[in-house]
Every structure is written in structure tokens, then in C-alpha cells.
Design a protein around this nucleic acid. Structure first.
Length: 581
RNA sequence: GCACCCAUAGCUCAGCUGGAUAGAGUGUCGCCCUCCGAAGGCGAAGGUCGUAGGUUCGAAUCCUACUGGGUGCGCCA
């Protein structure tokens, strides 16, 4: 249940009634009417803009509409008061019983409290990470992995049928480079001196792979030309890399539903089929592209190529799909991959890219738009860079000799929960500073700690209550007398709890899991605040000695808060802790 | 040169798809530990929301043009 939807429904019904009475014109579009929490709590629990958005089309003064609306709304049992304010806002105060119902609802639904029907079981494919299978995942991939995973969970919670997918780029030239690099390590395992030239990967992580290859084939490939071993080693190496990557993802708690291999598109007619589809729509032609102005590639020469007319679907220039040697460009299998996704019947596609792939957004959108005739929407979420710090000092990341910072380095240093939470406390399209020292700090300025601490505090209270012989399981709490909750500070916390379902919908609609993290922080803040007020006002303490009934009511409130915290952390993929250590 | 992203308090960032007097943490300053946990608490100061126009009842939010920073720009994926 979403309280805001309920009240909006009430407002709309009331407006409909006024239309039926003739107090308002019958032909009004009520779509813009919103019911939101006011910024300033002094304005009440909820505010509606109905009078202001309807004033013009109705040809009436906003305050006149608001006044009539207020009179009718006040008749509802849920509304304590309805006041006209400012330019025509209608501020509503809700009866305490409304908040009590929300708390009971949260306690009964538990982990499902806030689950939405926004997605209506529409099938959405979220593709993320999709790193080249040429080495371990690094920090840059980490953010994409965490973001994509949380977004997938969020959409699932909001009622979508979600598939988490990884596209393995195992078809391009970089995989040949990988194979040659592994071959060098293989020779090394046979006691040879090797040099990593021609851009081959010198990273230590391939030593083991070279040895494993030796274990598998013995000396069969030593002194043999590439033609003999390349295809075989390529498969062997990509398998090894994908195993590595799966382990990296697992260490972060990321589990994919589906891995899609680029290689599976070659020699199967799938790329050709996708291109034929575009050709049938008149979007494939031979032509010569203009050179980019300002920054001219050194070896530029005009060249006729096979092009996709992506400009017909919003791109800036048409894009080549074939190289001059007749092979496909990387874009062609990408088109085929998305063609495949479309054919699998998804209602929505989401791609999570790193910021350095921002240049591919328009062409991917163009391809999907063209292939699906505009039927399948695609959203592309870009994750900006992560800058690493330690105690405020920037971390230099050097790629030479493989000394770049890996996902594993980060997870080993700070743990998966902290990594995930911190990476989700920023919008995806803003750059993120990640300070190894600061994220492990146990203090209020560390949001991870702050939220976890709130949960731990409540669990501590639950333990103490149980020790005092008070039954505090959720079923018992849901039956508790909640009329003991009437203090403003308590209702403020209840309000935050009631906002949760709305936040889920907003976050899902925007595709912004960071909103969940911020809401949890706000909620934790409200909870800590209430706790602290108990110092001066004993009546606000959760444990009321010798009064189990009141204690149970108070605990129902804070337990409902942790229901939300646990649900939210679940979306973020962070494990709640019951005790701080 | 072009495209995309960013610009909000000294610092790090929110701002709920256009709402009311723009918020939080940190830092600064002033108070406060006999307390269900002080790994804190209360309060104060701190802003021409990059600049200039526009859209309307109403703009940090939408549009246009600039400024500054980031990412990228045909046979690498």
C-alpha cells in the first residue's frame, strides 16, 4: 500500500464529486494533480497542488477551488484537517490512526513492505558490467556492477520481471591478444624467457592460466605457429577469464541470470539477419563519411564503407558496420545482440555503460529503435568515473605491469557491503570519490555505518525487551496498541516509514537506486534523533519499565523502521547487521 | 569543431521529473556526558543554486546562448 496513492485517490474522487455537482467543469484533466509530502513538516503531512493546476483550465481562482475541496476532504475520517495555504496549496493533516495502520502494514508485510506494482510484470533486461574477458574486473567495472545490480533489484521490487545479463565481448581482436598473452605464459611455464610486446597483457593473473594450459596440452603448442593453437587458446583463455570474472562478481554479491557470448553471433547468421532487417528498412547503404572536424585522425582518408543510417533514428552521423577488410565492426554484433534481446520479447531494455562509452548511446538507441520499429524502449545508464583516495590523497592507478586496482582489491580492503553502499550514495551520472580510509570510519559522517547502526540499535532494544519477558515478534507488535504513539517525533518517524513505498516507485521510475540509499539515511537519521530525545524525555524511550503494553507500541514503531531499512538494504545488496562490532 | 555528462554553503553532496522561507553531513563558533550505547547531543553562523535571457500562477529543476570541468569522436571492443 502506498499512502500517498490512497490520499491522491481520495482527492481525485472528491474532485470527481465536485464535477458531478457542477462545482467544477466536467472536462478537467486531473492528471497533473499530485499529493506529496511538503518540504516543511510544519505544513502538514501531505500537500496537494490540485487547486493550482486546475485553476486555469477551470477558469476559477485557485483559492476558491482549494476552499471547496478542503471542506469535502475534511469529511473523510483519514483527514484531520485541510488548510488552504500560500498560492493555493491544500495542506492535509492525517489522523494518527492512518500512521498506525501504516506501521501495522509494515510489520505484517515485512520484507515485502513497499513492493510496488509499477512494473506490472513487464519484462526488462538489464545488461551491466559486460567487461571484456581479458582480465580481472577493475574499480571502474565495480561501480557499474553495483549500480546495475541494485537497479535490477529495485526494478524487481517495483514489480518488473527482471533479467540480469552480461554480454561477453569474446569475438573481437582483443581476445586474440589475450590468447597470445596466455601463450607467452604457457611458454614461460615451459621454462622459456618471454617478452610482452605488441600490446600483449603482462598481468600476473595470466601466469596461472599459462600453467593450466600446459597441464592440459603438455608441450603440444610449443614451437608451433599461431595457426595451430590460436583458436584453441582463445577459447581456453576466455573461459579462464570468465571464471575469474564470475568469481569477482560473486565476491561483490553479483549474480547474473544470463551470460550472452558475442562469439555465438558469428557464423550463425545472426549478425547477417539483424543487418538484413535494417536493410529491409532501407537503413543500410554504401557511403563515405565526413571526417570529424577539429580533431582529424592522422591517417584519415575518405573511404567508402557499409553504413547504418542511424541519423534516421536520432544519431548525429551514420555509423559504419563493416571494416574495409570486409569484417564486421564491433557495432555489427552489438546490433545483432540487441536484435536478439528484442526477439526474446522484452518490454524494456536497459544498458549500463561506463562513462567512456557515452559516445555509443545514440547509436545503440538508434539501432534498437530501428530494429523494433520504435516498439521497445531502451534506456542507457552511464556510470561516471570513480576516483580513488586514501586519507584524502589521490590514488594513482597505473596500467603498466598490471598494477591497476582491481575490484578484488577494493572488496578485500573494505568488504562487499561497504563497497556497494558507498558506490550507491551518488547518482550514477556524477563522478564518485571513493576514499578507502573514510568508508571504513565508524562515525556519523559515514552513511554506511549510520544506517547499519540504526538497525543494530533497534535489534539491541528487541533483545533487551525479550530479556525483560516482553514478546516482540512482528506478529505481536502488529497487534500492539499503537495509540501510545502520539508524540510529534514519533509521528515524524512513522511518516518516513510511510514514504518508503513512494520512494521505491520514484526511484524505480527514475532508474536511480541512490534514492533508496538516501532515504535509508534519512530514516536512520529520524530514528537516531528519536533515540536521542529519549535522553531528555523519558516518555520517548522505547523500553518503558513496568509497562509492557506501551513498550510494545514504541517498539512496533522502531521495528517498522528497520523493516524498511532491511528492505532497502536488500535492494542495495547490503547485508544488515544486527550488532555493531 | 561536434556530441553527451557535470556545475547548489569553505569542503563532500541531496533536492522526490515545475511547488511554499533551497536541505544534510563535514568544517567553523557556542553550550552539554549521573542518561534504554557519547564510535555522541543541542544551537548559531554560512547561498545572486556557474553567467545571461526565455517559458508560467510558480524555475535549482524545462528551453536558448555563453563560461568552466569531465568523457568521447571512421577500419579498438
Amino acid at each position: 500500500m502506498n499512502l500517498f496513492d490512497d490520499i491522491r485517490g481520495l482527492v481525485l474522487d472528491t474532485l470527481g464529486g465536485l464535477q458531478a455537482e457542477g462545482a467544477l467543469p466536467a472536462s478537467l484533466d486531473l492528471g497533473n494533480v499530485t499529493v506529496e509530502p511538503p518540504r516543511d513538516p510544519a505544513h502538514g503531512d501531505m500537500a496537494t497542488n490540485a487547486a493550482m493546476v486546475l485553476a486555469k483550465p477551470a477558469g476559477m481562482k485557485p483559492r476558491d477551488i482549494a476552499t471547496v475541496l478542503a471542506e469535502h476532504l475534511a469529511a473523510d475520517a483519514r483527514i484531520d484537517s485541510a488548510e488552504v495555504a500560500g498560492p493555493g496549496f491544500l495542506n492535509l493533516r492525517l489522523a494518527p490512526a492512518v500512521w498506525h495502520d501504516v506501521l501495522r502494514d509494515a510489520l505484517r508485510q515485512g520484507a515485502d513492505f513497499g513492493r510496488a506494482t509499477l512494473g506490472q510484470d513487464r519484462r526488462v533486461n538489464v545488461e551491466y558490467v559486460s567487461a571484456n574477458p581479458t582480465g580481472p574486473l577493475h574499480v571502474g567495472h565495480t561501480r557499474g556492477a553495483v549500480f546495475g545490480d541494485a537497479l535490477a533489484s529495485l526494478l524487481d521490487f517495483a514489480g518488473y520481471d527482471v533479467t540480469r545479463e552480461y554480454y561477453i565481448n569474446d569475438g573481437g581482436a582483443q581476445v586474440d591478444v589475450l590468447a597470445r598473452s596466455v601463450y607467452l605464459r604457457y611458454l614461460e611455464a615451459h621454462g622459456q624467457e618471454v617478452a610482452f610486446a605488441d600490446g600483449t597483457y603482462p598481468g600476473d593473473y595470466l601466469i596461472e592460466v599459462g600453467r593450466a594450459l600446459k597441464d592440459k596440452v603438455g608441450a603440444a603448442y610449443v614451437d608451433e605457429p599461431e595457426a595451430v593453437w590460436l583458436a584453441e587458446v582463445r577459447d581456453f583463455a576466455t573461459d579462464a577469464m570468465m571464471t575469474l570474472i564470475r568469481e569477482d562478481l560473486a565476491s561483490l554479491g553479483v549474480e547474473m541470470d544470463h551470460f550472452f557470448s558475442e562469439k555465438s553471433l558469428y557464423g550463425t547468421g545472426l549478425i547477417e539477419a539483424a543487418i538484413e532487417d535494417l536493410r529491409g528498412k532501407g537503413l543500410i547503404y554504401r557511403g563515405v563519411l565526413e571526417p570529424p572536424k577539429g580533431k582529424m585522425p592522422e591517417d584519415w582518408e575518405p573511404r567508402e564503407q557499409t553504413l547504418f543510417k542511424s541519423t534516421e533514428h536520432g544519431d548525429d552521423v551514420d555509423r559504419p558496420i563493416m571494416k574495409s577488410d570486409g569484417g564486421w565492426t564491433y557495432f555489427a554484433p552489438d546490433i545483432a545482440y540487441h536484435y536478439d534481446k528484442i526477439s526474446r520479447g522484452y518490454d524494456l531494455l536497459i544498458d549500463v555503460f561506463g562513462a567512456d562509452h557515452g559516445g555509443y548511446v545514440k547509436r545503440m538507441k538508434a539501432a534498437v529503435s530501428a530494429l523494433s520499429d520504435g516498439r521497445v524502449p531502451i534506456e542507457i545508464k552511464l556510470c561516471q568515473l570513480v576516483k580513488l583516495y586514501k586519507n584524502g590523497e589521490p590514488f594513482k592507478m597505473s596500467k603498466r605491469a598490471g598494477t591497476f586496482i582491481t575490484l578484488r582489491d577494493v572488496v578485500d580492503e573494505v568488504g562487499p557491503d561497504v563497497t556497494r553502499f558507498v558506490m550507491l550514495t551518488r547518482k550514477n551520472d556524477a563522478a564518485l570519490d571513493f576514499d578507502f580510509a573514510r568508508v571504513l570510519e565508524q562515525s556519523k559522517d559515514n552513511p554506511v555505518f549510520y544506517v547499519q547502526y540504526a538497525n543494530a540499535r533497534v535489534n539491541s532494544v528487541l533483545r533487551k525487551a525479550t530479556a525483560a519477558g516482553i514478546t516482540v515478534d512482528d506478529a505481536a507488535l502488529a497487534e500492539a496498541d499503537l495509540s501510545v504513539l502520539s508524540h510529534e517525533a514519533e509521528l515524524a518517524l512513522a511518516r518516513k516509514i510511510a514514504e518508503w513505498p513512494r520512494q521505491v516507485e520514484n526511484a524505480a521510475r527514475a532508474g536511480e537506486p541512490h534514492r533508496v540509499a538516501f532515504h535509508l539515511y534519512d530514516l536512520a537519521s529520524e530514528l537516531h534523533g528519536l533515540w536521542n530525545r529519549g535522553h531528555d524525555e523519558p516518555a520517548l524511550r522505547f523500553l518503558q519499565e513496568g509497562d509492557p503494553a506501551t513498550t510494545r507500541g514504541k517498539i512496533a514503531l522502531v521495528r517498522a523502521a528497520t523493516v524498511v531499512i532491511c528492505a532497502g538494504l536488500g535492494i542495495l545488496g547490503v547485508t544488515p547487521v544486527d550488532e555493531m562490532r
